[in-house]
């Protein structure tokens, strides 16, 4: 009944039970990643072509072409612009709603109902949402045009789909509309995780609602806010369904995001896999850096301390052993 032997004999089940995950990860995730990276250095083109050679004269040619590609630059710029235009109002409104819904001095009725309604757009198929907004903004006849004319803002119907600025704004709006409810729920649960003692102390000290929010809620919510920021940024960098189905990147590439760019390069027209792979790798590196950041934010603080203590203990034991020798 030796204790160390017992743990040892069960260790193999740890490996056994994680084996399906490891195999699926290696085959469907790690291998394609490495494959994509390699393809970025080859001449691989054409639908279904799996016969390729490494570029011998200029290994970085595809990467250089992508960096020089005006369309890629535009798509990267669009992606960031659309993300920022959606994120700022999304965060602001989510924070305001969070403050209201968790307020101690004022109880909003129907919180449950509002949460359900605000979250709803997030769960609906993005492809359908994009197509729905395409129909809502349609020209010459469409719900939005009708509405604006009824209210008296517009005199004649306006073709929203050919306006570059409006198209970008609509895509950003859809993104905002789909995500503010989600952000709000995450923030609310973050606030509910803050110790009620702090709020009680603030109340005794005579802090009002606004002061409590800015001096207590926001500082204590830092981790959750960073989490939302990074996940939203990674999601925004991968935005595909909405720009693809809303106007297919148009008009004149105004809503072309990097994911739509990669799709267009790799899976339509000329099937230029190698350049698309190079563009993918550039995005991969950007996203990896961001996830690294998130990983750092979310790391288990107790575990970090535990590890440090364990290391210190081991060091001390070693010193002890050396001294006794």
């Amino acid at each position: 009944m030796n204790k160390t032997r017992k743990t040892f004999s069960y260790a193999k089940y740890g490996y056994l039970f994680s084996l399906p995950f490891i195999i699926a990860f290696l085959v469907f995730s790690l291998y394609p990643t490495i494959y994509t990276a390699i393809l970025g250095f080859t001449d691989c083109k054409g639908l279904g072509n799996t016969d390729w050679h490494l570029l011998t004269d200029d290994l970085w040619a595809n990467f250089r072409k992508i960096f020089k590609n005006q369309m890629f630059k535009t798509s990267l710029q669009n992606t960031l612009v659309i993300w920022i235009v959606n994120f700022i109002p999304q965060m602001t409104i989510a924070l305001v709603l969070t403050a209201w819904f968790t307020s101690h001095s004022f109880d909003i009725k129907g919180k449950g109902f509002f949460k359900v309604v605000f979250y709803m757009p997030n769960i609906i198929t993005a492809a359908t949402v994009a197509m729905l907004f395409y129909s809502l903004f349609s020209y010459p006849k469409g719900p939005i045009n009708d509405l604006l004319k009824d209210v008296g803002i517009f005199q004649t119907n306006y073709d929203f789909h050919t306006d570059k600025v409006v198209s970008k704004l609509v895509v950003a709006f859809i993104q905002f509309w789909m995500w503010y409810g989600n952000t709000m729920i995450v923030l609310i649960s973050g606030v509910l995780g803050i110790s009620p003692d702090i709020y009680e102390a603030a109340q005794i000290d005579g802090a009002n609602g606004v002061q409590t929010f800015f001096r207590i809620t926001i500082p204590n919510l830092k981790t959750v806010l960073l989490y939302t920021l990074v996940t939203s940024l990674v999601g925004g960098l991968n935005m595909y369904d909405i720009p693809k189905l809303y106007l297919d990147g148009g008009p004149d590439n105004a809503t072309l995001t990097t994911s739509v760019f990669i799709y267009k390069k790799a899976f339509s027209g000329m099937y230029i896999y190698n350049q698309a792979a190079a563009a993918s790798m550039i995005m991969f590196i950007i996203i990896s850096v961001l996830s690294g950041l998130l990983f750092y934010i979310m790391r288990d603080k107790d575990e970090v301390r535990e590890n440090r203590e364990r290391r210190a203990a081991r060091k001390a034991a070693k010193l002890e052993a050396r001294r006794s020798r």
């Binding site: 990860f25 469907f28 995730s29 291998y31 394609p32 990643t33 490495i34 494959y35 994509t36 990276a37 390699i38 393809l39 691989c44 799996t50 990074v230 996940t231 990674v234 991968n238 595909y240 994911s259 990669i262 790799a266 899976f267 896999y273 698309a276 792979a277 993918s280 790798m281 995005m283 991969f284 996203i287 990896s288 961001l290 996830s291 690294g292 998130l294 990983f295 979310m298």
Partner: peptide, 18 residues
């Protein structure tokens, strides 16, 4: 934890080739 955030999109070309 590290691969949690990596989306399938950026590895799609290698995936489809495979």
């Amino acid at each position: 934890l590290a691969v949690m955030m990596i989306p399938a999109q950026v590895t799609s070309i290698g995936f489809i080739q495979m």
